[in-house]
Design a protein around this nucleic acid. Sequence first.
RNA 1: GCCAAUGUAGCUCAGAGGUAGAGCACUUCCUUGGUAAGGAAGAGGUCAUGGGUUCAAUUCCCAUCAUUGGCUCCA
Length: 646
Amino acid sequence: MIKITLPDGSVREYPKGVTGLEIAENISPRLAKEVLSISVNEEVWDLTRAIDFDAKIKLHKFEEEEGKHAFWHSSAHVMAEAIESLFPGTKFGIGPAVENGFYYDIELPNGRVLSENDFEAINKKMMEICQQNNKIVRKEVGKEEAINYFKQKNDEYKLELISELEDGTISLYSQGNFVDLCRGPHLPSTGYIKAIKVLSLAGAYWRGDETRKQLTRVYGISFPKQKMLEEYLLMLEEAKKRDHRKIGKELELFHFSPKVGLGMALWLPQGTLLREKLESWLTEELKKRDYEMVKTPHIGHIDLYKTSGHYEKYGKDSFQPIQTPAEGEAFMLKPMNCPHHVEIYKSRQFSYRDLPYRIAEFGTVYRYEQHGELHGLTRVRCFTQDDAHVFCRPDQVKDEFKKIIELVLYVFKSLNFNDFKSQISLRDPNDKTKYIGSEENWEKAEKAIQEAATEMGLNPTIELGEAAFYGPKLDFIVKDALGRNWQLGTIQVDYNLPERFELEYKGSDNEMHRPIMIHRAIFGSMERFVAVLIEHTAGKFPIWLTPKQFVVLPISEKYNDYAKKVVNLLKKYDIRGEIDDRNEKIGRKIRDNELKRIPYLLIVGEKEEAEETVSVRKQGHGDLGSMAVEKFAEFINDEIKKYFNN
RNA sequence: GCCAAUGUAGCUCAGAGGUAGAGCACUUCCUUGGUAAGGAAGAGGUCAUGGGUUCAAUUCCCAUCAUUGGCUCCA
């Protein structure tokens, strides 16, 4: 008998060779139906693998990473089996589970190329294999046996992989007629997969190496329930509908013109209004928190970036220096605001009493991103950071972090980003040599960040070795309405620039000391933030942010004058909107303005004009009845206040 | 930058080796209306750009440019 310890600490005895599936059945038949893989002493195993020793175990369902992973990994094998049976002689690269589904890199025989027209046949075949409910069997083999098998299959990709493995650690998994080199773990049988579908194709270099052959990467998704697949496909469609590029066009927020330049957004009037609202709101919040606003030029002398190190880092792969008529003089488009802000610090002398010194700027920077990297507003070549730098003493780092975290949380809450994670990136404890700055300062800062995060109620994950060479950092990753992750806020300690620019302050000991510089951004960049906001809200922005808060719809042209009066009156209350005075019926005007995601439609006709009221229609809620214009103004302003009071 | 797909009216997209079509938007006219599409007429395109094949190319081929998806997930 062996002792099996469950996650709750309870211990059960089982005969030697018991499997995860048997344990699950013993606990509850219902659990046995849902469980997909098992952790045995922290190692994830197949449910059907025999356990021969005392162990701590944990059973994993689809909801857990470990369960999903096994599920999708087996799905990749099913897809491979389907492709092999449809296209005998196909060679297989790697086929792992990924964040959303799985893929397999393949090479079809005789130079045939897979196309979307083949999807249906593959889907059908995959379902067949799943319905056969074939057992998935693990077999540990010697290296030679593995080599022989794939030699006979003539699969040079698998052979290359095997050649790098150590004898005695090689396992094969088989199901039906398909055998694959694989570490596992896998599902007990293919019948667990109730819904499976090929999603897309892409090219991918063998082993990510562009000098090597390009294989076809086939992406797929699968679920234990048909309904889950339907929901997932619906989510994908919803994501497409919410694509910020599409909504940006529909709402006339921004535009890209190849003539102006790739990756350079032109902000249209509506988009500019939205962006300005965000900027002025954040500016007010910064001022409340003792930041001072600064402005710096879009270019800087090349020597500035040589001192900062950015020339070395960005020089070759960036926009090239701008020459002037003067001999040997050159400027660079600024890739970062930091060096400019450092020079602002240097413009005066600092005592320890003057710190922290906080300066902020909506600073536009230019980076020559690779052509293929460009994507809508999320990856551009010219963008505006909501940048700020805090210069402080080492003993102030923790407090400053707490203050910045407070601001980040405030911003997230105000914009309804309620689901987010935080991540602290620290040094690699095994290789501390690649980091700049003193051991003492690093330790202090790493400790300060962790304490600040905990004290502010965050529950950050800690990533060792993820810190930049110049300092540790804290990042915020928000989940949008569709569950997608976006990295927005970042707070970074920097020991590098103060050193390079020889920044100083006079301490209480009358000696000169080096300040610590903290970089931070809340939005990240205005471009990316607006994109995330669009996708999060599907273009239905909060009332205080939205470019047009209302549109007045006259029942007929006879009431256009009254409509104009309403617009002007509301303007006095700082409520923005316009008239739809087209020669159309009211139904038409309602439809068009609903589609433009206008939060409030104010319908005016004979009755409203006589009573000096508007008939209010709220987006998504329909008719709210009529009210006096002033009352509506109050109503909106109350709604806006609610945003900031709770 | 590399691979693939795509590029036709302001937008969304059909189409075919014989120099173009729809819907929406736009202009004009009719209609003056009560909570998600009123009617009619009109205007609008070197079919991304440059080559090639052909009697004939927007359509086929090549190149360029742009857009999109991927190139990070390691059996």
